[in-house]
């Protein structure tokens, strides 16, 4: 249940951004979560309501942009889409791949008031 730590880190980031902007609270937050980031979205939703209570995110809506997984084969440099880390290169069947997208875990933007 590391999603609770993740939700609490998001609250910290939002609080700092609100303070910096001289605002009061956040009405909307946009997150970018890669398919291979190791985040269970249902667990994040579950943790969210507890983590944001009495925080600048208490009344914020949240939108999540999903970033599909993409990898580059370290043998033949083919770039291909991946849904799981154990996928082999479709061109040369090599197991050595470098994940180039899908590990993202970012706060993209906030709307503050």
């Amino acid at each position: 249940m590391h999603e609770l730590s993740i939700a609490m880190s998001i609250v910290d980031i939002a609080r700092e951004a609100v303070e910096k902007a001289g605002a009061r609270e956040v009405s909307h937050i946009e997150l970018e979560i890669g398919q291979l980031a190791g985040i269970e979205l249902r667990a994040l939703d579950f943790a969210w309501s507890e983590a944001v209570r009495n925080s600048v995110l208490a009344h914020a809506t949240k939108a999540i942009h999903h970033i599909p997984g993409e990898a580059r084969c370290m043998e033949c440099e083919t770039v291909f889409s991946i849904q799981a880390l154990h996928q082999l290169c479709p061109a040369c069947s090599g197991p050595f791949t470098e994940v180039i997208h899908g590990k993202e875990l970012r706060v993209h933007a906030l709307t503050v008031h």
Partner: peptide
């Protein structure tokens, strides 16, 4: 920062695990 109709939009692009 961009001005949205209701409130200001702040683009952060901040890694959630950045502090760690």
């Amino acid at each position: 920062e961009h001005t949205a109709r209701d409130g200001r939009v702040i683009t952060l692009e901040q890694d959630i695990l950045q502090k760690n």
